[in-house]
Design a binder for these strands. Structure first.
Length: 413
RNA sequence: GUGGCUAUGGUGUAAAGGCAGCACGGGAGGUUGUGAUCCUCUUAGUACGGGUUCGAAUCCCGUUAGCCACCCCA
């Protein structure tokens, strides 16, 4: 029986892995320029963490988590998202006490048990960032500007930003009540999915793609009519700052987030090239979360970018650095191998990529050198060993010369 | 979780119930110790399990996986 990767989890092989590295490096550089610092949290967390943060009735917690018991019967869960673990770490390490502001980014795998399709897998990577300790609209704007900058850095220019404000704990309940009233008596007219949604998460009905439902919700109240003055003001400021920051965006009053902890600013980065899973990044403000998880009352805002979707958008023609072999040692015989080792080490210490074959005829070794695209080959066999020299061949020119062994490192520079 | 489509060497493909072939890739050679091209040889496949049939890559059923969509979301 062949052992295969499990459904929805895939390998990233070269040369794709080079593209992944490129993306990660570009992201890190940009995070640096915004003063964000990397955090690495465990992939496994107590199940409780996600139940309390993401929400008991959310789709993620209800049916998508990889949950299991450890040997002591503790319920553990493979993280389905990145914000809750970061907030847990923030509280646990009392980061608020060291600095009122924490700006953190992460890069790593998340796990959700979903039906795989284009841009959606069970293990997927996210690049995420969280800004804790700032309630100011400037924080919201900066996160969006940072996100915008990242996409520029990735060379992806055909994405669009959509934003909304979900209100806060004083105005959101009023809106929910209004939606509830609006739907009352109409439930039967909606599609089956929406009828389920009307009980659990009525806001999602506004998100339904079916035309029938869309038509019915045409006249539904929008959150904007229910914002409290503070939320309205905050949102106004965010929009103004975005304009000043040259981030183009569209207001979409129907953006709803699937995770319970979001409030106020919510946003999505969309691209038409992605098919049904058209969001490549999303995020929002989570002001009550730190407190809900037992920490101080610290506001926060963050986003996550889906790595696989990003790769899907970048793939055509993105340039990435492949280190590439620069010097190949073609060695014949055990003595030559022994003599070459220390020289190869010296060259590696000078940052050259130096490789050899592990046997075979000179012809096959040369063929391999050519396939690897190396510039120079050092040929060292019994004849050369006797003369105390090595042959250095320039593969592009096709020329070669004899070099004294002692001068080899210097010659290859 | 639901529905549709798909599954042939490492990759891309051909074979419409009757010899599993081609290309690329991988390996070894083409005189004594030299990479491209070219030439020769070689490697490797019908996803898995059943069924129909004289005979199955081909038809049927199941499983698994992939893709697409619902759902959900990054």
């Amino acid at each position: 029986m062949k052992i295969t990767a499990i459904k929805g989890m895939s390998d990233v092989l070269p040369p794709d892995s080079f593209l992944w590295r490129e993306i990660e490096e570009r992201a890190r550089k940009i995070f640096d320029t915004y003063g964000f610092e990397e955090i690495r949290t465990p992939i496994v967390e107590p199940t409780e963490l996600f139940v309390r943060s993401v929400g008991e009735t959310s789709a993620i917690v209800e049916k998508e988590m990889y949950t299991f018991e450890d040997k002591k019967g503790l319920s553990l869960t493979l993280r389905p998202e990145g914000t809750a673990p970061v907030v847990r770490a923030y509280i646990e390490n009392a980061m608020h006490a060291k600095d009122p502001i924490a700006k953190l980014y992460y890069f790593g795998p998340m796990f959700r048990y979903e039906q795989p399709q284009k841009g959606r897998s069970r293990q997927f990577f996210q690049i995420g960032a969280e800004l804790l300790g700032a309630e100011s609209s400037l924080a919201d704007a900066e996160m969006l500007i940072l996100l915008h900058r990242l996409f520029q850095g990735f060379g992806i220019l055909d994405v669009r930003f959509e934003i909304n404000s979900l209100g806060c704990k004083t105005c959101r309940p009023k809106y929910l009540e209004a939606i509830h009233q609006f739907l009352k008596g109409k439930e039967k007219k909606f599609c089956d999915d929406c009828q389920k949604r009307s009980k659990k998460n009525p806001l999602r009905i506004l998100d339904c793609k079916k035309e029938g439902c869309r038509a019915l919700t045409e006249t539904a109240p929008t959150i904007g009519d229910y914002w409290c003055e503070a939320c309205a003001q905050h949102y106004r400021e965010v929009r103004g700052l975005l304009l000043a920051g040259h981030v183009k965006f569209k207001e979409n009053p129907r953006i709803v987030r699937g995770l319970d902890y979001y409030c106020r600013t919510a946003f999505e980065v969309l691209c038409d090239r992605l098919g049904a899973q058209n969001a490549v990044a999303a995020g929002g403000r989570f002001d009550g979360l730190v407190k809900d998880l037992g920490g101080p009352d610290v506001p926060g805002i963050g986003f996550a970018i889906g790595m696989e979707r990003l790769v899907l958008l970048m793939e055509p023609g993105t340039r990435y650095q492949v280190p590439g072999t620069s010097i190949f040692f073609a060695l014949l015989g055990n003595e030559a191998q022994q003599a070459a080792l220390s020289i190869m080490e010296e060259l590696r210490a000078k940052d050259h990529c130096v490789v050899s074959a592990y046997g075979g005829s000179l012809k096959s070794q040369m063929r391999r050198a050519d396939k690897l695209g190396v510039q120079r080959v050092v040929i060292l066999g019994e004849n050369e060993m006797q003369k105390g020299i090595a042959i250095v061949k320039d593969m592009k020119e096709g020329t070669q010369k004899e070099i004294l062994m002692g001068r080899l490192v210097e010659e290859l520079g």
